[in-house]
């Protein structure tokens, strides 16, 4: 009975993972196929689509831009969201908390294409460029609600008496946060950062009007490419990202003990 339950659970997870990863695995498989059309039956094995990426430096630099933008946006979003979630959980009444949480989640409610264009229009009306930091800040605002949600959930089960205890033992605000609060909330903080990073890294609509030749992100470059070409090089780019992300995840865990979830 127990064994059957475990087997059923394993099968469920296997099917779920196949569903989530299936389309991507299929696309990645085509990146080793020399055929130029998509989707094509296998005609052999090749790495030429990977070599093709090296002849398109804009893909590599865009991937770098995206990683930097996503990391900065996620960091900014998590810090800001943590402060807000903390304030709301500690002091707010539950109705005030609900109202504020909804307000802070409002970026999710507006189509990003429109916000992207509106930011550009406003910035140029005021004679300021949006630039790199405008892009980062816009991404941060959009991903912040996700971090806020996770942190509010984490704080909902957080016992603030622990902080009182720490302070009554002579700990200051900062040291209480550093020694007590943050370690206890680590799972939500780490998951929030992961969430935000991913959402920023793959975001297209928000970046549509906010990028310039120097700040083109990977989705922008891929979207422009895919309008006039469809070949397995795009698949090769995806598989390189997956490889890089997988390596980074394992190395971070191994050497820095930083995990996607904790």
């Amino acid at each position: 009975m127990r064994f059957l339950g475990k087997a059923a659970g394993g099968l469920y997870l296997l099917l779920l993972y196949l569903f989530v990863a299936g389309p991507l695995l299929f696309v990645i498989a085509t990146s080793f196929n020399p055929a130029t059309s998509f989707p094509a039956p296998f005609e052999g094995l090749t790495l030429s689509w990977y070599a093709a990426i090296l002849r398109r430096p804009e893909f590599l630099s865009a991937a770098g831009t995206s990683a930097v933008v996503a990391a900065l946006a996620a960091a900014l979003a998590v810090v800001v969201a943590f402060l807000a979630a903390y304030a709301l959980s500690r002091n707010g009444s539950s109705s005030a908390r609900g109202a504020m949480a909804t307000l802070l989640a409002s970026p999710l409610l507006v189509p990003q294409v429109v916000i992207s264009l509106a930011i550009l229009q406003l910035a140029s009306a005021w004679g300021v460029g949006t630039g790199f930091w405008g892009l980062v800040a816009a991404h941060a605002v959009y991903v912040m609600p996700f971090a806020l949600r996770l942190l509010l959930t984490g704080l909902a089960r957080f016992d603030f008496a622990v902080e009182e205890a720490s302070r009554s033992l002579g700990g200051g605000w900062l040291s209480t946060w550093r020694e007590v609060t943050l370690p206890l909330l680590r799972p939500s903080i780490v998951a929030g950062f992961t969430f935000c990073f991913i959402l920023s890294f793959v975001n297209l609509p928000l970046s549509l009007f906010l990028t310039s030749p120097d700040t083109a992100t990977l989705p922008i470059v891929m979207f422009a490419y895919i309008e006039s070409r469809i070949d397995p090089m795009i698949a090769a780019v995806a598989s390189v990202i997956v490889l890089a992300a997988g390596t980074a995840t394992i190395l971070l865990d191994r050497f820095l003990h930083v995990r996607l979830v904790d």
Partner: peptide, 11 residues
């Protein structure tokens, strides 16, 4: 500055 014609025209 690359993109679809519509997006670039809006810029």
């Amino acid at each position: 500055d690359i993109g679809g014609q519509g997006a670039r025209y809006n810029k």
